[in-house]
Design a protein around this nucleic acid. Structure first.
Lengths: 154, 154
DNA sequence: GCATAATACGAGTATATACACGCATCGGCC
DNA sequence: GGCCGATGCGTGTATATACTCGTATTATGC
Protein backbone atom coordinates (compact mmCIF):
# COMPACT_ATOMS: atom_id res chain seq x y z
CA UNK A 1 0.00 0.00 0.00
CA UNK A 2 1.18 3.55 -0.70
CA UNK A 3 3.27 5.27 1.91
CA UNK A 4 2.37 8.79 0.82
CA UNK A 5 4.82 11.42 -0.41
CA UNK A 6 8.45 10.96 0.47
CA UNK A 7 9.55 13.27 3.24
CA UNK A 8 12.80 14.11 1.46
CA UNK A 9 13.39 14.99 -2.16
CA UNK A 10 17.09 15.27 -1.61
CA UNK A 11 18.00 12.91 -4.42
CA UNK A 12 16.23 15.21 -6.85
CA UNK A 13 18.23 18.18 -5.62
CA UNK A 14 21.31 16.69 -7.22
CA UNK A 15 19.92 17.64 -10.63
CA UNK A 16 19.22 21.25 -9.84
CA UNK A 17 22.58 22.38 -11.13
CA UNK A 18 21.65 21.02 -14.54
CA UNK A 19 17.94 21.84 -14.60
CA UNK A 20 17.31 24.99 -12.60
CA UNK A 21 16.68 27.95 -14.88
CA UNK A 22 17.45 30.42 -12.14
CA UNK A 23 20.76 28.83 -11.26
CA UNK A 24 21.97 28.64 -14.84
CA UNK A 25 20.78 32.10 -15.73
CA UNK A 26 22.50 33.73 -12.79
CA UNK A 27 25.64 31.74 -13.43
CA UNK A 28 25.69 32.87 -17.05
CA UNK A 29 25.01 36.39 -15.85
CA UNK A 30 28.10 36.30 -13.67
CA UNK A 31 30.26 34.91 -16.45
CA UNK A 32 29.12 37.45 -19.01
CA UNK A 33 29.28 40.37 -16.59
CA UNK A 34 32.91 39.56 -15.92
CA UNK A 35 33.54 39.07 -19.61
CA UNK A 36 32.20 42.51 -20.46
CA UNK A 37 33.77 44.22 -17.49
CA UNK A 38 37.17 43.11 -18.73
CA UNK A 39 36.73 45.53 -21.57
CA UNK A 40 35.55 48.27 -19.24
CA UNK A 41 38.48 47.89 -16.86
CA UNK A 42 40.16 51.23 -16.37
CA UNK A 43 37.12 53.07 -17.70
CA UNK A 44 35.02 55.13 -15.35
CA UNK A 45 31.91 53.22 -16.38
CA UNK A 46 31.10 49.57 -15.85
CA UNK A 47 29.26 47.49 -18.39
CA UNK A 48 26.04 47.73 -16.39
CA UNK A 49 26.33 51.48 -16.02
CA UNK A 50 27.09 51.88 -19.69
CA UNK A 51 23.97 49.91 -20.61
CA UNK A 52 21.86 51.93 -18.20
CA UNK A 53 23.18 55.20 -19.54
CA UNK A 54 22.59 54.04 -23.11
CA UNK A 55 19.04 53.13 -22.12
CA UNK A 56 18.43 56.60 -20.75
CA UNK A 57 19.91 58.14 -23.87
CA UNK A 58 17.77 55.97 -26.10
CA UNK A 59 14.57 56.52 -24.11
CA UNK A 60 14.96 60.26 -23.93
CA UNK A 61 13.17 61.69 -20.93
CA UNK A 62 11.28 59.21 -18.78
CA UNK A 63 10.00 58.94 -15.26
CA UNK A 64 11.63 56.52 -12.87
CA UNK A 65 8.67 54.16 -12.97
CA UNK A 66 8.58 54.10 -16.78
CA UNK A 67 12.31 53.49 -17.00
CA UNK A 68 12.19 50.81 -14.33
CA UNK A 69 9.44 49.00 -16.18
CA UNK A 70 11.42 49.25 -19.41
CA UNK A 71 14.41 47.64 -17.73
CA UNK A 72 12.35 45.07 -15.80
CA UNK A 73 14.03 46.51 -12.75
CA UNK A 74 12.56 47.34 -9.39
CA UNK A 75 11.99 51.06 -9.14
CA UNK A 76 13.98 51.40 -5.95
CA UNK A 77 16.84 49.49 -7.54
CA UNK A 78 16.83 51.92 -10.42
CA UNK A 79 16.95 54.87 -8.04
CA UNK A 80 20.05 53.44 -6.40
CA UNK A 81 21.69 52.49 -9.69
CA UNK A 82 21.22 56.03 -10.94
CA UNK A 83 22.99 57.53 -7.97
CA UNK A 84 26.60 57.06 -9.14
CA UNK A 85 25.64 58.36 -12.58
CA UNK A 86 23.91 61.33 -11.05
CA UNK A 87 26.79 62.09 -8.70
CA UNK A 88 29.12 62.28 -11.66
CA UNK A 89 26.80 64.56 -13.58
CA UNK A 90 26.02 62.07 -16.35
CA UNK A 91 22.28 62.31 -15.83
CA UNK A 92 19.91 64.73 -14.17
CA UNK A 93 16.38 64.53 -12.84
CA UNK A 94 13.69 67.17 -13.03
CA UNK A 95 10.14 67.22 -11.69
CA UNK A 96 7.76 65.45 -14.02
CA UNK A 97 4.21 66.34 -14.93
CA UNK A 98 3.13 65.57 -11.40
CA UNK A 99 4.71 66.94 -8.34
CA UNK A 100 5.04 63.26 -7.42
CA UNK A 101 7.04 62.03 -10.38
CA UNK A 102 10.61 62.81 -11.41
CA UNK A 103 11.96 62.52 -14.95
CA UNK A 104 15.47 61.35 -15.82
CA UNK A 105 17.55 62.59 -18.76
CA UNK A 106 21.12 62.28 -19.92
CA UNK A 107 23.41 65.31 -19.76
CA UNK A 108 25.94 66.52 -22.32
CA UNK A 109 28.62 65.12 -20.07
CA UNK A 110 26.71 61.83 -20.03
CA UNK A 111 26.65 61.76 -23.84
CA UNK A 112 30.39 62.35 -23.90
CA UNK A 113 30.96 59.53 -21.40
CA UNK A 114 28.74 57.28 -23.49
CA UNK A 115 30.63 57.92 -26.70
CA UNK A 116 34.00 57.59 -24.96
CA UNK A 117 33.03 54.19 -23.59
CA UNK A 118 31.37 52.96 -26.74
CA UNK A 119 34.51 51.36 -28.22
CA UNK A 120 34.90 49.34 -25.04
CA UNK A 121 31.37 48.03 -25.37
CA UNK A 122 32.00 47.28 -29.02
CA UNK A 123 35.13 45.39 -28.07
CA UNK A 124 33.37 43.27 -25.46
CA UNK A 125 30.39 42.66 -27.69
CA UNK A 126 32.39 41.60 -30.73
CA UNK A 127 34.70 39.42 -28.63
CA UNK A 128 31.69 37.74 -27.11
CA UNK A 129 29.87 37.14 -30.38
CA UNK A 130 33.01 35.81 -32.00
CA UNK A 131 33.75 33.44 -29.13
CA UNK A 132 30.22 32.13 -28.97
CA UNK A 133 29.65 32.07 -32.71
CA UNK A 134 27.13 34.32 -34.37
CA UNK A 135 24.51 31.62 -34.80
CA UNK A 136 24.69 30.53 -31.19
CA UNK A 137 24.67 34.15 -30.09
CA UNK A 138 21.49 34.84 -31.99
CA UNK A 139 19.86 31.85 -30.36
CA UNK A 140 20.94 33.12 -26.97
CA UNK A 141 19.45 36.54 -27.62
CA UNK A 142 16.16 35.07 -28.82
CA UNK A 143 15.93 32.83 -25.78
CA UNK A 144 16.69 35.69 -23.42
CA UNK A 145 14.09 37.91 -25.00
CA UNK A 146 11.53 35.13 -24.75
CA UNK A 147 12.33 34.82 -21.05
CA UNK A 148 12.03 38.57 -20.58
CA UNK A 149 8.59 38.56 -22.18
CA UNK A 150 7.40 36.35 -19.34
CA UNK A 151 7.82 39.31 -17.05
CA UNK A 152 5.67 41.59 -19.19
CA UNK A 153 2.50 39.63 -18.62
CA UNK A 154 3.01 39.34 -14.88
CA UNK B 1 39.43 61.83 -48.40
CA UNK B 2 38.71 60.02 -45.12
CA UNK B 3 37.99 62.07 -42.02
CA UNK B 4 39.04 59.41 -39.54
CA UNK B 5 36.78 57.86 -36.91
CA UNK B 6 33.69 59.75 -35.88
CA UNK B 7 34.02 61.32 -32.45
CA UNK B 8 30.56 60.19 -31.38
CA UNK B 9 28.92 56.84 -31.78
CA UNK B 10 25.78 57.99 -30.04
CA UNK B 11 23.49 56.91 -32.83
CA UNK B 12 24.75 53.35 -32.42
CA UNK B 13 23.97 53.44 -28.73
CA UNK B 14 20.28 53.42 -29.58
CA UNK B 15 20.59 49.76 -30.56
CA UNK B 16 22.29 48.58 -27.41
CA UNK B 17 19.02 47.64 -25.79
CA UNK B 18 18.42 45.19 -28.60
CA UNK B 19 21.97 43.97 -29.20
CA UNK B 20 23.90 44.04 -25.94
CA UNK B 21 24.32 40.56 -24.52
CA UNK B 22 25.08 41.88 -21.06
CA UNK B 23 22.01 44.09 -20.95
CA UNK B 24 19.64 41.38 -22.10
CA UNK B 25 21.16 38.72 -19.90
CA UNK B 26 20.93 40.82 -16.77
CA UNK B 27 17.42 41.87 -17.64
CA UNK B 28 16.38 38.25 -18.09
CA UNK B 29 18.15 37.47 -14.84
CA UNK B 30 16.04 40.03 -13.01
CA UNK B 31 12.82 38.75 -14.56
CA UNK B 32 13.53 35.13 -13.77
CA UNK B 33 14.81 35.83 -10.27
CA UNK B 34 11.54 37.56 -9.45
CA UNK B 35 9.59 34.78 -11.12
CA UNK B 36 11.25 32.14 -8.96
CA UNK B 37 11.18 34.20 -5.80
CA UNK B 38 7.40 34.40 -6.08
CA UNK B 39 7.34 30.71 -5.27
CA UNK B 40 9.80 31.17 -2.42
CA UNK B 41 7.85 34.00 -0.82
CA UNK B 42 7.17 33.19 2.79
CA UNK B 43 9.88 30.54 2.83
CA UNK B 44 13.04 31.12 4.79
CA UNK B 45 15.14 30.48 1.69
CA UNK B 46 15.30 32.50 -1.50
CA UNK B 47 15.69 30.92 -4.89
CA UNK B 48 19.37 31.82 -4.99
CA UNK B 49 20.01 30.44 -1.54
CA UNK B 50 18.14 27.26 -2.37
CA UNK B 51 20.27 26.76 -5.47
CA UNK B 52 23.45 27.42 -3.52
CA UNK B 53 22.48 24.99 -0.79
CA UNK B 54 21.55 22.38 -3.39
CA UNK B 55 24.94 22.90 -4.98
CA UNK B 56 26.70 22.29 -1.69
CA UNK B 57 24.58 19.22 -1.07
CA UNK B 58 25.32 17.88 -4.53
CA UNK B 59 29.04 18.63 -4.37
CA UNK B 60 29.52 17.10 -0.95
CA UNK B 61 32.49 18.60 0.82
CA UNK B 62 34.44 21.22 -1.10
CA UNK B 63 36.77 24.09 -0.39
CA UNK B 64 35.60 27.61 -0.99
CA UNK B 65 37.81 28.02 -4.04
CA UNK B 66 36.56 24.78 -5.61
CA UNK B 67 32.95 25.67 -4.97
CA UNK B 68 33.40 29.21 -6.25
CA UNK B 69 34.91 27.89 -9.46
CA UNK B 70 32.05 25.45 -9.85
CA UNK B 71 29.56 28.28 -9.55
CA UNK B 72 31.58 30.72 -11.69
CA UNK B 73 31.38 32.99 -8.69
CA UNK B 74 34.05 35.15 -7.16
CA UNK B 75 35.43 33.46 -4.08
CA UNK B 76 34.74 36.43 -1.85
CA UNK B 77 31.18 36.60 -3.15
CA UNK B 78 30.72 32.98 -2.19
CA UNK B 79 32.04 33.66 1.30
CA UNK B 80 29.46 36.38 1.76
CA UNK B 81 26.63 34.37 0.23
CA UNK B 82 27.39 31.53 2.61
CA UNK B 83 27.09 33.73 5.66
CA UNK B 84 23.28 33.74 6.02
CA UNK B 85 23.25 29.97 5.47
CA UNK B 86 25.95 29.50 8.04
CA UNK B 87 24.28 31.76 10.57
CA UNK B 88 21.16 29.63 10.36
CA UNK B 89 23.12 26.42 10.77
CA UNK B 90 22.35 25.06 7.30
CA UNK B 91 26.01 24.60 6.45
CA UNK B 92 29.24 24.35 8.36
CA UNK B 93 32.90 24.83 7.53
CA UNK B 94 35.83 22.82 8.80
CA UNK B 95 39.56 23.18 8.20
CA UNK B 96 40.60 21.52 4.96
CA UNK B 97 43.72 19.57 4.21
CA UNK B 98 45.74 22.74 4.60
CA UNK B 99 45.54 25.03 7.52
CA UNK B 100 44.85 27.61 4.81
CA UNK B 101 41.77 26.10 3.22
CA UNK B 102 38.31 25.63 4.65
CA UNK B 103 35.81 23.04 3.47
CA UNK B 104 32.06 23.62 3.33
CA UNK B 105 29.41 20.95 3.93
CA UNK B 106 25.67 20.86 4.43
CA UNK B 107 24.25 20.06 7.86
CA UNK B 108 21.29 17.85 8.74
CA UNK B 109 19.33 21.02 9.32
CA UNK B 110 20.42 22.18 5.88
CA UNK B 111 19.17 18.96 4.31
CA UNK B 112 15.84 19.43 6.06
CA UNK B 113 15.57 23.02 4.81
CA UNK B 114 16.42 21.83 1.32
CA UNK B 115 13.73 19.18 1.25
CA UNK B 116 11.18 21.54 2.80
CA UNK B 117 11.83 24.12 0.09
CA UNK B 118 12.01 21.65 -2.77
CA UNK B 119 8.30 21.83 -3.63
CA UNK B 120 8.62 25.58 -4.00
CA UNK B 121 11.47 25.16 -6.43
CA UNK B 122 9.48 22.53 -8.29
CA UNK B 123 6.54 24.91 -8.46
CA UNK B 124 8.61 27.76 -9.87
CA UNK B 125 10.47 25.52 -12.28
CA UNK B 126 7.35 23.86 -13.68
CA UNK B 127 5.52 27.17 -13.93
CA UNK B 128 8.44 28.63 -15.82
CA UNK B 129 8.87 25.74 -18.22
CA UNK B 130 5.16 25.66 -18.91
CA UNK B 131 4.97 29.38 -19.56
CA UNK B 132 7.98 29.40 -21.82
CA UNK B 133 7.21 26.12 -23.53
CA UNK B 134 9.42 23.10 -23.11
CA UNK B 135 11.12 23.46 -26.48
CA UNK B 136 11.95 27.11 -25.93
CA UNK B 137 13.10 26.31 -22.41
CA UNK B 138 15.51 23.69 -23.65
CA UNK B 139 16.94 26.17 -26.14
CA UNK B 140 17.38 28.68 -23.35
CA UNK B 141 19.24 26.19 -21.19
CA UNK B 142 21.53 25.18 -24.03
CA UNK B 143 22.31 28.77 -24.85
CA UNK B 144 23.03 29.61 -21.23
CA UNK B 145 25.34 26.66 -20.84
CA UNK B 146 27.18 27.65 -23.98
CA UNK B 147 27.65 31.13 -22.53
CA UNK B 148 28.88 29.69 -19.25
CA UNK B 149 31.49 27.60 -21.05
CA UNK B 150 33.08 30.83 -22.25
CA UNK B 151 34.08 31.46 -18.69
CA UNK B 152 35.83 28.11 -18.30
CA UNK B 153 38.52 28.88 -20.81
CA UNK B 154 39.24 32.32 -19.40
C1' DG C 1 -15.87 69.46 -1.58
C1' DC C 2 -14.13 65.60 0.91
C1' DA C 3 -12.84 60.91 2.16
C1' DT C 4 -10.46 57.19 0.09
C1' DA C 5 -8.02 54.55 -3.14
C1' DA C 6 -4.29 54.75 -6.36
C1' DT C 7 0.11 56.45 -7.81
C1' DA C 8 5.07 58.03 -7.44
C1' DC C 9 8.81 58.26 -4.83
C1' DG C 10 12.74 57.66 -1.06
C1' DA C 11 14.82 55.35 2.97
C1' DG C 12 15.81 51.23 5.72
C1' DT C 13 17.25 46.61 5.52
C1' DA C 14 19.13 42.50 3.54
C1' DT C 15 21.22 39.77 0.00
C1' DA C 16 24.24 39.32 -4.36
C1' DT C 17 28.31 40.57 -6.70
C1' DA C 18 33.27 41.62 -7.53
C1' DC C 19 37.93 44.02 -7.01
C1' DA C 20 41.97 45.45 -4.28
C1' DC C 21 44.47 44.47 -0.46
C1' DG C 22 46.51 42.12 3.31
C1' DC C 23 47.44 37.91 6.22
C1' DA C 24 48.50 33.15 6.88
C1' DT C 25 50.28 29.04 5.02
C1' DC C 26 52.40 25.83 1.76
C1' DG C 27 55.83 24.23 -1.62
C1' DG C 28 60.14 24.40 -3.82
C1' DC C 29 65.00 25.91 -4.01
C1' DC C 30 69.32 26.72 -2.17
C1' DG D 1 66.61 25.32 7.80
C1' DG D 2 65.33 29.64 5.62
C1' DC D 3 63.74 32.58 1.72
C1' DC D 4 60.09 33.47 -1.76
C1' DG D 5 56.69 32.83 -4.97
C1' DA D 6 52.21 30.55 -5.04
C1' DT D 7 47.94 29.41 -2.82
C1' DG D 8 43.70 30.01 0.20
C1' DC D 9 41.00 33.22 2.81
C1' DG D 10 38.82 37.35 4.91
C1' DT D 11 37.88 42.42 5.03
C1' DG D 12 37.01 46.98 3.12
C1' DT D 13 34.67 49.29 -0.36
C1' DA D 14 31.44 49.89 -4.02
C1' DT D 15 27.76 48.59 -7.02
C1' DA D 16 23.42 45.72 -8.07
C1' DT D 17 19.15 43.97 -6.55
C1' DA D 18 14.52 43.80 -4.29
C1' DC D 19 11.06 44.07 -0.37
C1' DT D 20 8.73 46.76 3.22
C1' DC D 21 7.26 50.83 4.89
C1' DG D 22 6.32 55.62 5.11
C1' DT D 23 5.30 60.21 2.77
C1' DA D 24 3.51 63.12 -0.64
C1' DT D 25 0.51 63.82 -4.38
C1' DT D 26 -3.18 62.75 -7.60
C1' DA D 27 -7.47 60.74 -9.05
C1' DT D 28 -12.05 58.99 -7.94
C1' DG D 29 -16.53 58.18 -5.86
C1' DC D 30 -20.13 60.20 -3.56
Amino acid sequence: MPRGPRPFDLADCAHIGANCTLFNLRKASRVVTQFYDESFRGARLRGTQFALLAGIYWRGTATLTELARLLAMDRTTLTRNLRPLRTRGLIFTVPGRDRRSRSVSITARGRRALSMAFPRWQNAQSRFVRRLGRTQWRKLMHSLQAAVRLGDSV
